[in-house]
């Protein structure tokens, strides 16, 4: 029985974060896809339908919240769990994120264990 590797899409413009996250997730046994801007992130999400999307809100070209709303509107991507990890800790921002359908909203900085626990909740 072949266990299909779970795919996680990281939409994040910070190269260092992408590097650290993808290294961590790969080590943990996930297939990691990365997108450095909003448009690319949305494309990948729609094409490859990952098991989980880790989304930053402040990203170039397309706002994270718009990506989230778009994904939730489309039938074939609406079920993909999305976890927001943002530097923005404003209550409004958190509320908007959760209202738009995010599973959780984590405020940076997020520790390794925190991230791992969160991922395990959804896949």
């Amino acid at each position: 029985m072949v266990i299909r590797m779970k795919t996680i899409l990281l939409i994040e413009d910070e190269k260092n974060i992408l590097l650290v996250y993808s290294k961590l997730l790969k080590k943990a046994g996930y297939r990691v896809l990365t997108a450095e801007n909003g448009i690319k992130g949305l494309e990948i999400a729609q094409e490859s339908k990952p098991d989980l999307i880790i989304l930053d809100l402040l990203i170039p070209k397309l706002d994270g919240l718009v990506i989230l709303e778009t994904l939730k509107e489309e039938e074939n991507t609406a079920d993909i769990p999305v976890v927001i990890i943002s530097a923005n800790s404003n209550q409004d921002s958190i509320e908007n994120g959760l209202k738009a359908g995010a599973e959780n909203y984590l405020v940076k900085p997020v520790s390794r264990n925190e991230l791992m626990l969160e991922i395990k909740k959804h896949i």
């Binding site: 910070e14 260092n16 974060i17 590097l19 650290v20 996250y21 290294k23 961590l24 080590k27 990890i85 530097a87 923005n88 405020v107 940076k108 900085p109 997020v110 520790s111 390794r112 264990n113 991230l115």
Partner: peptide
């Protein structure tokens, strides 16, 4: 503060991984 958070995330995470001997 916001600008500090992002690099802090990667640094912390990287150090966490190193400490957890992930790499």
């Amino acid at each position: 503060s916001h600008e500090f958070r992002t690099p802090l995330t990667s640094i912390t995470m990287a150090l966490n991984m190193l400490a957890a001997e992930d790499v």
